[in-house]
């Protein structure tokens, strides 16, 4: 992984190592994803085939909620232990730390969820193209969420009602991802290759990659001072 700067590597390794030491926490985002999915059959009318026809949208919504809720953990532990302050005071490049944290968060939440969408979609009778499109859009979209979400997570770290405030602030910004992600999957289920949607999601990812880490670094400095 020498294509990333050292600080990014180190931060990502730290995040991964930290999470793998409390093994149960690895599964929380995944379990929540499936839990939300399970709520829908109970709530929508039992019309045969209805659930499967809106499955892509439901999968994307459940993924969105699971990832939004897991964003809180990005900076919480480091803020309350004072590690964030130590890292800042030691002159670390906070932009690289932000990228490392987002990458670590994506590997733990977005990536597993995207991969899990494949077998789940298969069980729900989605065709092959739809399954691939789902996985790719979820990977792109969740990476964007990890990046943009890191800025908002840094801004709201340690505040009363922090988790809820974080989700409330992030969801409006995730709506475009939801729109294009689920529309791509729906089009794929009709046999159309969703080029426009994929371009858009790619564009949003690049935008967030270039803007979010700086916003996150700035947010950390604001909250520490």
């Amino acid at each position: 992984m020498t294509l990333f700067p050292r600080a990014v590597n180190e931060t990502t390794s730290r995040e991964l190592r930290k999470t793998f030491r409390s093994p149960s926490e690895i599964f929380y985002p995944l379990i929540f994803f499936v839990l939300v999915l399970t709520m829908f059959p109970f709530s929508i009318p039992p019309v045969p085939g209805l659930f499967n026809s809106i499955a892509s949208g439901i999968l994307w919504t459940a993924a969105l909620l699971a990832i939004s809720l897991s964003l809180e953990t990005l900076f919480k532990a480091d803020y309350s232990s004072g590690a964030l302050e130590v890292i800042h005071l030691s002159g670390a490049n906070l932009v690289l730390v932000a990228i490392g944290k987002s990458l670590g968060h994506w590997i733990i939440s977005g990536l597993p969820i995207a991969l899990l969408a494949f077998p789940i979609g298969w069980a729900l009778d989605l065709n092959f193209l739809t399954l691939w499109v789902l996985v790719i859009t979820l990977m792109l979209g969740s990476a964007t969420m990890s990046l943009t979400g890191s800025s908002i997570s840094a801004l709201t770290v340690g505040l009363r009602g922090g988790g809820f405030l974080l989700v409330m602030l992030s969801l409006p910004f995730f709506v475009p991802l939801l729109i294009f992600g689920s529309s791509a999957a729906t089009n794929a289920s009709l046999g159309i290759v969703p080029e426009a949607e994929l371009y858009f999601l790619g564009g949003m990812f690049v935008l967030s990659l270039t803007v979010a880490p700086w916003a996150t670094a700035h947010a950390i400095k604001i909250r520490l001072g």
Binding site: I152, L155, F173, F200, M204
Partner: peptide, 19 residues
Amino acid sequence: ACALMTVVGAVNIPIIHYS
């Protein structure tokens, strides 16, 4: 903090609108 949030929002609002 709210100033940063406003700027982040300003980048996203056109995107939301067109989406």
